[in-house]
């Protein structure tokens, strides 16, 4: 019984908390994905840094991932508490725009430099990463040198990938194959199928299988090895550099039309691409900064694969064809 009363107490406190915050000063509510807000993620540091300059409180609300973020915004519509949505990616932008909930931010963004020169008046890139096949150097001596190599290579060397129906990296690989193979994508998948150890619902499961040694390769980001080099001091896990290019994932933030304090929201976006925020991102979110940092990145980042060729399919085209392409993928992958 005591547990329940504590529970009630905690719940009451949680109900009252926002009011307490409101009474104090301005607040900025940022919807983002969960790993951004975690203890190891960039969230807490960015919040602290921004609060130093704004005389406001940043309220970070983390939902499961970028897709859940968009769903939540759709569900809440105009009544959403959110001022900023942070963590959508390039393949979701078209759908996000279609909701009509976002507004062009009009901030100065000449500092932003992402491969492929992606630019948008509503969604501001704050980091990016190229998808890449990460391999275990202890098992794989000659990593694939291109997507074609991966698809046609030794089927006894397996890769763990993610499901495009449930995860953004999974969708990324789907688009990557589409970008390289076009109409021939189904044939490519039919070949790749035998190399796929398993298809997991999300990035975490696949990466877990990889670090447990179940699969010698996994679909992740070119930046993944940086984590192992910086935090674990090992260069065992490396990204394979593909000569036919790497598909890019650009993470963006946008201001909502009904943001309570648009000036505050804009100043947060401006802060997001300032060196103060960009310094935080590489070693917490393990992605590449979208704008200049105040100091050079750790050495580990110099050792990362730098894709010569960036692949990206326009967000409108993705939105229009996503279901058809997923169906194509399902058919190719389900064939015996």
């Amino acid at each position: 019984m005591r547990g329940i009363s504590t529970f009630l107490l905690a719940a009451t406190a949680a109900v009252l908390a926002p009011f307490a915050a409101k009474a104090q000063d301005k607040t900025l509510t940022v919807y983002t994905y969960e790993s951004f807000t975690s203890d190891w993620g960039p969230g807490p540091k960015i919040k602290a840094e921004f609060e130093k300059t704004c005389a406001c409180t940043v309220n970070l609300i983390g939902v499961a991932d970028g897709v859940a973020l968009l769903t939540r915004l759709k569900l809440e519509g105009e009544g959403s508490e959110a001022d900023i949505a942070l963590g959508l990616d390039t393949s979701l932008i078209s759908e996000a725009k279609a909701t009509g909930l976002f507004e062009a931010n009009g901030i100065e963004k000449s500092a932003v430099k992402v491969p492929g020169n992606y630019a948008d008046d509503t969604f501001l890139p704050y980091d990016y990463g190229h998808f890449a096949v990460i391999y275990d150097t202890q098992t794989i001596k000659t990593p694939p040198k291109s997507l074609k190599d991966l698809i046609e290579g030794d089927t006894s060397q397996k890769i763990a990938i993610q499901d495009p129906r449930t995860s953004t990296p999974g969708l990324g690989l789907l688009l990557w194959v589409k970008a390289v193979y076009g109409d021939k994508a189904p044939e490519a998948w039919a070949k790749l199928k035998d190399r796929v150890l398993t298809v997991t619902p999300g990035w975490s499961e696949a990466y877990g299988l990889f670090t447990k040694g179940e699969a010698p390769m996994v679909l992740s980001y070119t930046t993944s090895p940086a984590y192992h080099m910086v935090e674990e001091k090992t260069d065992r896990y490396q990204a394979a550099s593909f000569s036919d290019g790497h598909y890019i994932q650009i993470e963006v933030a946008g201001m909502l039309k009904h943001a309570k304090d648009k000036d505050l929201a804009k100043s947060f976006l401006t802060f997001l691409i300032s060196p103060a925020a960009q310094d935080i991102i590489p070693t917490t979110n393990w992605m590449m900064p979208a704008a200049a940092t105040s100091a050079p990145l750790p050495d580990a980042f110099d050792k990362l694969v730098k894709p010569a060729n960036t692949l990206l399919i326009g967000s409108d085209e993705v939105a229009k064809n996503r279901q058809a392409w997923i169906d194509e993928w399902l058919t190719a992958m389900s064939r015996k």
Binding site: R165, T166, L197, V199, P201, E205, L330, K336
Partner: peptide
């Protein structure tokens, strides 16, 4: 989760 992680593919 079990079906997806251990199932091997969308089949």
């Amino acid at each position: 989760t079990l079906v997806l992680v251990l199932g091997g593919g969308p089949a």
